[in-house]
Nucleic acid binder design. Structure first.
Lengths: 165, 165
DNA sequence: TCCAACTGGTAACAGATGAAACTATGTCGC
DNA sequence: GCGACATAGTTTCATCTGTTACCAGTTGGA
């Protein structure tokens, strides 16, 4: 099960995959977050809530949390900030008074109409250097990794490997 | 310059690359950080400092920061915590009294001897599902992305794209 | 040699984030 | 219907991370 080139490999941080992944993700996140903030005064969680609300009108906060894997607290704060800015509407959920149905206000839709193309442009600029096939393969790999790690969330992660000492 | 399949693509958060990258990175980081903490009581920055100190004996904190792109404050805190635990030694830097040369203590080396294989095992478990070639391609892509974004750090990121309004 | 600008490292502060506690509501079994 | 338990969302609190301010030490020029 251990592939030959990987067996007994020395640990070098620079070649350690979780590290490389975190490294790149941080770089990209900082760039993107900075742009959103500078251009639209939106934090990442707020931007995500807007995007999801635009895609699924009337979605609940819990559903946003599930979809984006953001903590419900994070979603709550983003939703509060956005409604305070008049970008998001919280309407009562028919049949459940604890919940609301979120949708973009006219101002929210207007903002989204500006943000979305800018986001795609940003993405394009970052990944334009990569041939298309490489990009697709990259995303496919990301999703495979997701699947592996998500499957662990049920198991205890550390249990099967007793501390070596 | 805009590749055909990407042009005019609608923005769907779930398919937005910076989002996917952040998503996967967070999953992996949480898994790895949880394991380090549970097994060795090490935070990610501490683990990185140990790894780099093991690779480059006598390295300075600034050099660690450069190598890992961690903030010098983060490195400082990790180094303080590790020396307090007797895992790391700060020895005077000959010729510069502000700086120190960091190296693992005997206890630090002993810990590292446990952590490193465990880290590789963890990596192996996460990425074992991927064929080897895919893995190599994945890392290569990560590094290309790094190069693109790092090149931006000199430029103003938002300047060339006037807000669309 | 002395002063100004700079650098390595630390401390103090501020913003972001997640866990846990809490409120209000909903659901289930009796 | 009512009491125990679950759930949506908010608030509170502890923690982590980065920006800024700071101190000790260094460098370079007048």
């Amino acid at each position: 099960m251990i592939r030959s080139s990987m067996a007994k490999r020395a640990l070098i941080l620079d070649e350690f995959l979780p590290y490389r992944l975190s490294f790149t993700s941080n770089l990209v996140s900082e760039a993107v977050a900075g742009a959103y903030m500078a251009l639209f005064d939106l934090r990442i969680p707020e931007w995500r809530v807007i995007a999801v609300a635009a895609e699924h009108d009337g979605i609940s906060q819990q559903e946003i949390g599930l979809a984006t894997r953001m903590d419900k607290v994070t979603v709550s704060r983003a939703a509060i900030a956005l409604t305070a800015r008049g970008l998001l509407l919280k309407r009562p959920h028919p049949g459940d008074k604890r919940s609301h149905r979120l949708s973009l206000s006219a101002a929210g839709r207007a903002l989204y109409a500006q943000v979305a193309p800018k986001a795609l442009e940003l993405e394009e600029r970052i990944f334009a250097a990569l041939p298309e096939g490489e990009l697709d393969a990259f995303v496919a790999t990301l999703r495979k990794i997701d699947a592996v790690v998500l499957r662990w969330d049920e198991d205890a992660l550390t249990a099967p490997t007793a501390p070596a000492d």
